[in-house]
Design a binder for these strands. Structure first.
Lengths: 224, 224
DNA sequence: TGGACAACCTAACGGCCGTTAGGTAGGTTG
DNA sequence: CAACCTACCTAACGGCCGTTAGGTTGTCCA
């Protein structure tokens, strides 16, 4: 007689589809991935996917929602911690954001890589959940930085998100340790990157406005 | 008799195609934009584009290369300036990067929005130019932050790029003024965002490592 | 034993895609 | 005026796409 139950039963068809789709969407793009591609990974035919999902867009919505759920859970698990100092509180949240982002790879990173190119109807469906996660961060930063205006808080949140989320393009969680990275990001955000012993005069001359061109970001690999 | 010459002659077919393509690629995506879409904007038929470009990928390569050119020109125009203090030098470069990014909108932002989903062959072609721009920034940061390791410089550059480039998703150059934004980014990077009068104990307790989930970025609109 | 149901497969549909071969109109040049 | 070149157009090609209607298989329950 076998074990009474299989608590960790091997993933069902639907779960396997979700995982395969997330992976493919992340490293090929949504439009660039066909249902036949996804089906091939899970050893099915394209038509069979419609037993589990109403449409390709529907599948994408499902992925996005699972991703955000993970993010929110992560944030809340930090918040429920005992009270820390402002700096340590920031570090805890930054570390958690990065850990969730990299450890639940395809599902969470999908937001960063694919949201922009998703069909409008899909984006509209997901926006409320995204907003609620972002609101948590806005509230956090407003608490940590009481001397800042609402506008500044907003910009600081967006740049911090930009800095953290860009890491999915170059940080390989399988190789590097996230902790020192998280600490560097958090410390830089809080204290700045300037040399400690710098005795150069704090000249604040405004740089002349110009109209020149500039830059981009950087992917760690190409899978397309 | 008309004016002797038309120094600002109206854009040729090729230029109009390039502009239209850049715009469409940015707000719909590369795969999501068909040659028929582009042709319609410039009042042509899809086949006619092949008089100017060998293929759709070829067109994309052209766009990427023009974009990077603008970025590099911008960076160099700052570098050729008289010597500034470290902080002002950083500000000048941040401001220029942002200005070039937002004022040459479709061409430069294309890198941030589309590079990731571009076909591998296209990416490979463009990588050297991108690297040369990024190397300039790496060298700059290495000069400004002599106490940092190479690894730290690399990470700081990537997070700074992430922070700056993310702005194309939410900053509307037509509405807001770039200057205060650039100053905030630069100051935050250099001095940090922490409150000035903060007298809270600088407790450096390491946040316990966890494995929770987290977040994303945020587009200003949807055009798809 | 048989019916119900879950989980697939088969085969095709219309449609849009990038691309190409072969035109053609209009200006320029000898 | 003729030849030529530039800058398009027309019409079609094969191919892949998302999606659907209608099977087929296996398992579970009565």
């Amino acid at each position: 007689m076998p074990a009474i139950a299989t608590p960790t039963k091997e993933p069902s068809g639907r779960t396997r589809i979700v995982d395969a789709a997330a992976t493919l969407f992340v490293d090929r793009g949504y439009a660039e991935t066909s249902l036949r591609d996804i089906a091939a990974v899970v050893d099915m035919k394209a038509g069979s996917l419609y037993y589990h999902f109403a449409s390709k867009d529907d599948l994408l919505v499902d992925l996005f929602e699972r991703g955000i759920e993970l993010m929110i859970e992560g944030f809340d698990s930090v918040e429920s911690d005992d009270d820390l100092g402002p700096e340590d509180r920031l570090l805890a949240h930054v570390a958690t954001h990065l850990q969730v982002l990299h450890s639940n790879h395809p599902l969470t990173t999908l937001h960063v890589t694919t949201f922009r190119n998703a069909p409008a109807s899909v984006r509209d469906t997901v926006v409320p959940q995204r907003d609620s996660y972002e609101a948590k961060w806005t509230a956090l930063l407003a608490e940590l930085l009481p001397d800042r205006t609402k506008t500044e808080i907003g910009i600081l949140r967006l740049t911090l998100f930009g800095a953290m989320n860009a890491s999915i393009e170059w940080f390989d969680a399988a190789r590097g340790n996230l902790d020192p990275f998280a600490r560097l990001v958090s410390e830089q955000f809080w204290h700045g990157a300037a040399p400690k012993a710098s005795t150069t005069a704090r000249s604040s001359t405004t740089a002349k406005s110009r109209t020149v061109p500039s830059t981009t970001s950087r992917p760690k690999r190409g899978t397309n």
